[in-house]
């Protein structure tokens, strides 16, 4: 723990953090700092190394090399101390099915050194705060996905961790529960809770996070606030073209007609053909004539303002959800 004092406010810090599974480098010498009080998002497609990064920071995955600190605690050298400082909401429902809703909180408090009285009080308080008091005595298997997620968040913050780490917290939740969880995280953050979350939903990162690290193949490709990242994309916007017929032919033709380089990228997506770059609006006539040349009918053409997805495609030439 020699170089820990350079960023005194860091809630989480990694230094050349690396994890290799066989021949696969899941996380590649990652240097990352999460400041105290912020909501920090790791955004990237599945397999980008987000979950592994979260796992290493929370002692659940042993790094191949490098270091990770929570506050000033080295998580590899002192996992027990680190565990006291982290609250974890994993991707799957890890509630204790042998216990009731209230007992899940009560015993969590006891594991973290609370007296019976304090654990009981905290349990009641959290059940009320997270609107679960009428389910207190039920088995956790009687909870809906959204409720189970709320209970996991309540459990994770019960011991007042330095950082709350959530892995894909809203994947699999219905839209309403997702919005409710965002509200909860904003409230917690408003009260000073540092949050580190991984997500592959760009809206989630955009809406919620103070800073976002865009991650792919174990590396951070870009880092900044959502607006900074969008600005870094150089004002690139997206032209979305929907045609009847095979868009593959169109892409080929457009690539020849427009010429693809660092400034313009063309990808196929579920919603249509996306042309990303600066001043793509000027390409509209070329797109239409190319499509007509192929006998394809353009039935929708829209210009989408820069989003994190634009940024991601700009960086990788791929869609975020692939």
């Amino acid at each position: 723990m020699n170089d820990r004092s350079d960023v005194p406010t860091a809630a989480v810090r990694t230094v050349k953090l690396r994890k290799v599974y066989g021949n696969n480098v899941a996380v590649d010498d990652l240097d990352l700092t999460v400041n105290g009080g912020e909501i920090f998002g790791l955004l990237g497609p599945n397999g980008a190394g987000k979950t592994t990064t979260g796992g290493m920071i929370t002692t659940r995955v042993l790094p191949t090399s490098g270091q990770a600190f929570v506050g000033d605690v080295d998580v590899v050298a002192h996992p027990a101390e680190a565990k006291a400082k982290i609250g974890v909401v994993p991707q799957s429902n890890t509630l204790d099915r042998a216990l009731s809703v209230a007992q899940n909180l009560y015993f969590h408090g006891r594991y973290f050194g609370m007296s019976k009285r304090v654990a009981k009080e905290k349990t009641d308080e959290l059940l009320t705060r997270f609107r679960l008091e009428d389910r207190a005595k039920l088995s956790v298997s009687a909870l809906s996905g959204g409720m189970a997620q709320r209970l996991m968040v309540a459990r994770a913050i019960m011991h007042e961790p330095t950082v709350l780490v959530l892995d894909e917290p809203t994947s699999g939740l219905d839209p309403q529960s997702r919005l409710a969880l965002w509200d909860i995280l904003r409230d917690l953050n408003g009260a000073g809770q540092t949050v580190l979350l991984t997500t592959h939903y760009m809206e989630e990162a955009d809406e919620l996070c103070d800073r976002i690290a865009i991650m792919d193949h174990g590396k951070i490709l870009a880092l900044g606030s959502a607006s900074e990242l969008k600005a870094k994309a150089g004002g690139a916007s997206t032209l979305l073209v929907k045609v009847s017929g095979d868009p593959g032919e169109l892409i080929q033709k457009l690539e020849n007609a427009i010429g693809v380089d660092e400034r313009v990228k063309i990808v196929m997506s579920e919603s249509g053909v996306k042309i990303i770059g600066k001043d793509v609006a000027q390409l509209i006539s070329k797109v239409v004539s190319s499509a007509e040349g192929l006998g394809l009918k353009v039935y929708d053409l829209s210009l989408v303002q820069p989003s994190l997805e634009t940024v991601f495609i700009n960086l990788t030439g791929r869609e975020l959800r692939d």
């Binding site: 105290g36 506050g71 027990a80 101390e81 006291a84 400082k85 973290f112 050194g113 609370m114 304090v118 308080e125 705060r129 997270f130 609107r131 913050i157 011991h159 007042e160 961790p161 330095t162 409710a180 509200d183 909860i184 409230d187 917690l188 408003g190 009260a191 000073g192 809770q193 540092t194």
Partner: peptide, 23 residues
């Protein structure tokens, strides 16, 4: 969320610290 989050969260890492594994 009916209320904003309890002030207690502010006291980050307050209540735990080092404690014996036996407990």
């Amino acid at each position: 969320m009916a209320k904003t989050i309890d002030e207690s969260i502010k006291a980050q890492g307050g209540s735990v610290g080092r404690m014996s594994y036996v407990r």
